[in-house]
């Protein structure tokens, strides 16, 4: 699915004429058309492709808090996610939460304490029917053909409608400048990844399923750091590892009754219990 430069320019041109108008547009169109008419843009051939990406997260393989932290750090370090202490202004792409808060309403009074308090790794569910995408007034958040719910931080106007719509609390708003410092003068981003951008105040951000890594043939960072606890793959491919796990084991999804169709499956029991 490559889009040639000509079509590109057409769209750019039409939107410029509609938006701005003026002679410079006509001038620019003709010159650009000559200069770069043969230029094309294509995906990286190394990129991973799928019909619908998804995760199977085996909670039994994530034993200690250190196991969770490894996945969280992998993601947050790569993506320059600021660590802001104030929970009101916190930004997080992946984090852990106890069972009763991850799956509210399913806990019960006789549930064993250990399970109730068990930690689950939470991140954007990359829903098949995402409410956030439905409500976004600028298509800053949109669904890709491969199932990734993307966030275009260039286009986001910061209205936070998506945060009201998301039933999973997966979205964070930059209430503060992520490049700023905390009260003790320490920067929110401890170590910058120089190959990835930060964000700016006033935009919403969230897990983007490591689209920048998928594009060059790498697994999402959390899956890579999880020691096999997080399996990433194509949910539509019956032979993929993620499908085999879902087929053979008992899995649950967060708030399935809302119809958003999360693409993240939590493996609860082994095949012998299924």
């Amino acid at each position: 699915m490559s889009m040639d430069r000509r079509r590109f320019l057409k769209i750019a041109g039409v939107s410029t004429v509609l938006g701005l108008g003026g002679a410079s547009v006509m001038n620019g169109l003709s010159r650009r058309g000559l200069e770069a008419s043969q230029a094309t843009v294509t995906p990286d051939p190394k990129g991973l492709t799928a019909k619908r990406w998804g995760f199977a997260i085996d909670v039994n393989k994530l034993g200690s808090p250190a196991d969770y932290q490894k996945c969280i750090d992998a993601c947050h370090n790569i993506h320059n996610v600021p660590s802001i202490e104030n929970p009101k202004h916190e930004v997080k792409w992946i984090w852990n939460e106890t069972y009763e808060h991850s799956f509210p309403g399913t806990e019960h009074e006789y549930m064993n304490h250990e399970f109730k308090e068990k930690n689950f790794l939470l991140l954007c569910n990359h829903c098949a029917q995402p409410a956030c995408v439905r409500v976004c007034p600028t298509q800053a958040t949109f669904k890709r053909k491969d199932g990734v719910v993307m966030q275009d931080m260039h286009r986001c106007i910061g209205c936070r409608f998506c945060m009201a719509a998301c039933p999973f609390g997966a979205r964070s708003f930059n209430y503060r400048d992520p490049r700023g410092k905390d009260a003790n003068g320490k920067p929110f981003i401890k170590v910058e990844n120089k190959t990835f951008p930060t964000r700016m105040i006033g935009v919403v951000e969230k897990c983007t399923m490591c689209y920048e890594r998928l594009a060059i043939g790498q697994q999402p960072a959390c899956a890579e750091a999880s020691n096999g606890a997080i399996v990433f793959g194509d949910l539509e491919d019956p032979n993929s590892e993620v499908r085999k796990i879902i087929n053979s084991k008992y899995t649950i999804r967060r708030k399935p009754e809302l119809g958003t169709q999360p693409s993240i499956y939590y493996v609860i029991g082994g095949s012998e219990h299924a």
């Binding site: 009101k88 202004h89 916190e90 609390g169 708003f173 503060r176 400048d177 105040i201």
Partner: peptide
Amino acid sequence: EGLGITGLSRDVS
């Protein structure tokens, strides 16, 4: 400074 100067939060956005 950003909307951090308001009482808004990640939860009450």
